[in-house]
Design a binder for these strands. Structure first.
Lengths: 188, 188
DNA sequence: TTGATTATACTCAAATTTGAGTAGGGTGAC
DNA sequence: GTCACCCTACTCAAATTTGAGTATAATCAA
């Protein structure tokens, strides 16, 4: 499970409390690559603590706020981290893409509605591309190279998606969605 | 939830039993775009049936095999299908990529191990690219255009991933993973 | 100044997913 | 001919995820 990897990886940099982990993830837009849900995060942290992969360093109590429990990674946790990384590289799991699936099945419904929403989605997608590029540029001088690769990779994938959406849009607008037999005439 | 969309979409083509849905999904490599787990599929089918979005048409019993329940989509189900498609196009959710995350954090571990596994992964990724292209080509004459877009899109994404992996590999092999401050010198 | 939103920090019940199990039949290799 | 493995079709308990809720403080505008 991906969130465990992130928890261990960030604790390898410095001790943190769970909420702080969410902040760092957002700062580096890691929440675009690994799903971040508070409930799952706290569950995973508890799990890791029960198994002695991480341990509480300090509990900060204030009368008015919830307690903050700061965690550190243990040696057992470091071993798990390595194992999970290697496992993930080895395993060949596809990347799921619900938007593509929805659009692939969209020929069953009213094409004018699809066309309309697709226009908005393309605009949103363009925005995402710019955002991703900006994040990449802003981090050039401040993150390790592998993290920079991550950011550039996100930019590339968002660009791939945008181009796909635009091609699809042409077809929807031309009401060709139900055609069978003609290859997509692709240049790229 | 993505699997519901697929169930409804396939039942829109013809009546099927759940196991048949898994076969069709694999045939069209839809299982590369939407996670397919038997348990989740049967759960979703039960759910849809309870809510009258689909209904049992026929139950085939043989003494030796488990019963097959064939389902059809209802009008209520058709409405849900449209709603889910439009919702999915509207919503802007990122695509999660655990492999990228693992590699982005891999600078904390032994680089020679990463290098080795990365070589295998690149070979596997090349294989996936070829496979995806082949699936696209083979389906040109037999699926609606929007489904063809899906297949071509998968090919493109796998190619984007392959190029990313190769660039990363160069850096790992050159032991540059921890460098900070140099932009990736990119041509594409 | 009151109301609205955002940030801090979690918690919990209910929904869903996972992973393993069940069980008979077919198929290919040795 | 038998052993191992895949195919057909699901089922189920346990693990995990989800989505909403909790509660306080700070910030900002109208």
């Amino acid at each position: 499970m991906s969130i465990k990897l992130v928890i261990l990886g960030l604790l390898l940099e410095r001790d943190m409390h769970p909420y702080e982990i969410t902040l760092v993830m957002k700062e580096r837009s890691m929440d675009q690559i690994t799903k971040l849900q508070m409930g799952s995060l706290y569950y995973a942290v508890d799990k890791l603590a029960q198994e002695d992969h991480i341990e509480a360093v300090e509990i900060i109590r204030s009368s008015d706020r919830p307690d903050k429990t700061i965690y550190r990674i243990t040696d057992k946790g470091k071993a798990l981290f390595e194992q999970l990384i290697l496992q993930q590289i080895k395993k060949n799991e596809p990347i799921y893409h619900p938007l593509y699936m929805a659009l692939a099945m969209s020929h069953h419904i009213d094409q004018s509605k699809v066309e309309k929403l697709l226009e908005e989605r393309i605009r949103e997608s363009e925005h995402q591309v710019n955002l991703a590029y900006q994040v990449y540029e802003e981090h050039i001088s401040i993150v390790p190279r592998s993290v920079l690769h991550l950011m550039y990779g996100r930019y590339e994938h968002s660009l791939t998606e945008l181009r796909w959406l635009k091609r699809l849009y042409e077809d929807v607008a031309a009401r060709k969605q139900s055609d069978i037999g003609t290859p997509l005439h692709l240049e790229a």
